[in-house]
Design a protein around this nucleic acid. Sequence first.
DNA 1: CTGAAAGCGCTAACAC
DNA 2: GTGTTAGCGCTTTCAG
Lengths: 339, 339
Amino acid sequence: MSKTTLKQLAENLNLSVGTVSKALKDYPDISDITKKRVRTLVKELNYKPNSFAQNLRNQESKIIGLIIPQVVHHFFANIILGVTEAAERKGYLVIVLESAESYETEKKHLDLLLKRNVDGLLISLADNTIKYNHIIDIINQDHPIVLYDKISKSIDCHKVVIDDKKAAYNATKFLIKNVGCKKVAHIRGPLKPQTTIDRFQGYKNALKEYHIPFDKSIVFESKDLTFEDGEKIAGDIIKNKEIDGVFAFTDLLAAGVLKGLLDAEVSIPEEISVIGFSNWLLTKMTSPTLSTVDQPGYKMGIQAFNLLYEEIMSRKNNLRIRHRTIELPTELIIRNSTK
Amino acid sequence: MSKTTLKQLAENLNLSVGTVSKALKDYPDISDITKKRVRTLVKELNYKPNSFAQNLRNQESKIIGLIIPQVVHHFFANIILGVTEAAERKGYLVIVLESAESYETEKKHLDLLLKRNVDGLLISLADNTIKYNHIIDIINQDHPIVLYDKISKSIDCHKVVIDDKKAAYNATKFLIKNVGCKKVAHIRGPLKPQTTIDRFQGYKNALKEYHIPFDKSIVFESKDLTFEDGEKIAGDIIKNKEIDGVFAFTDLLAAGVLKGLLDAEVSIPEEISVIGFSNWLLTKMTSPTLSTVDQPGYKMGIQAFNLLYEEIMSRKNNLRIRHRTIELPTELIIRNSTK
DNA sequence: CTGAAAGCGCTAACAC
DNA sequence: GTGTTAGCGCTTTCAG
């Protein structure tokens, strides 16, 4: 059951290796008869081109690398799906590596991927990545890169994001305008990442628009974005009796808040309305179900790959294209945690 | 910034390509001085071996394929993590592809992976895979394969599983013995997969041990294992006033049941105790929190890779080893959905 | 329309 | 100790 090679096909057909190769690639200068002979023998011997040889010859792996901050995460799992599906359509396979939100791991994994000659890289930055030289170096070495979701504005490449600012603005606005909240608290993520900054900004913008004074004391910071952190912060929220709405940076936090408030006998949404972010599966399972912002992971994955593909192709043709940033729309999903 | 090759190193040092190659591989017949010269130049020119050429020469990709039935699934996300980490330690990278529980997709994806000459395959069977020829063929073509989680007993290869029967037995036993349930219902998955069969069997075994007659009418079948399905089945459960315990095939179903029961004003765990399966993140977030069986995805991923590695190595040395099935222990996690 | 030949970059057996 | 050489299997240019 040893692998059949071009050479074997050639010998079988009394042709040269080159001719067989061209026949398979449907070159116009090969006769139809030859092409047919080749194709039937290919089926008969179940010939599969040796991808190693193709890779070496073409200097491309038809593999891309995908860096994910957290695999165990509904949103990112959907990213994986979107990317692999889009990639598959173009004949690419995907190697997924997790940075675990660590700058060091991110660097290490990018290096691993590059050593294997991936044709391009899809990266969402780790929360504690605050220098971008490692990324910029890779771009300067002429590797196609697309940033998605957690990006940095200071890196010049294609990007695909959601409009965090607007999404946060809409969520906060909903609490103020539709629910009628007078005092909306915000739970933000760690200081640095752009997403944290943008959602915080959106929150502030909504307050401003409705002439509600910004109150620093009701902006809570969660370091690790866990359910337990949410529960803990619920304790702080209760202390301020005026708070009647909470916009949390992510669903996990929001779910923790929900739990913490309920355990303290606060009724939701009657006393406090809560909105999360991401539309995880769990938002349908909390009691009450959680209002949230839908973050389209699957679509983002597809877009990210398509941009990368564009970049790969343009580099192949030695074109340099202007880099775009695609913003995907989000949707406010209203469930039972908001009045 | 063009890539440095062995040849360039050789020219720079007035050595032959072969010598440089051997120096890098630390062959004993190369002098220390030469090795040092080579190594310093390697650093200076930032030489990286061309993996394409290495692959072609060694006929190995140092990549393995991982087939996952559902990426958006806490357990399987942990599998990905475990596999990639273990693989990385041995210098392997991982390509993840989802079968989406479809036999056709599973076959297609295996084919894709094989075309790319992956060095081995880690497979969890799709729910609707009921013929195994595609897998057996691959094994006969001498490709290393390890099955994990959803396996088939009729395939001869290394496997890593949990003892579903025992886990289900323990969960049911807990409901009977510790909680004191008299009438425990079971929600099973689709008919075919081994996991469904085993968990159902474990449930029955526990009943038998405690001399509780098996009652077919309180075994409900969920086709798609969704939250919504669980909610629906809750409706059926309520109709039988005697039911005081539920053992569900998976957490998502159990969470749905919880919600359905609560919506119908059944108090949990006072009137009915519920146990799920898998220990998803969401089990900590339902109200009440959900008792469940912890399924160690991360560990299973590590074990699965290690078995595959063993298989790869033994084939390299033309050894044929006896295939083992590793059973990982599960743990009953008791939270607030059980009395 | 087909064949010959070079070469992608590396490894390892063999020669000196 | 080091160099030489023969591939690994494929693609593509050039010659005929």
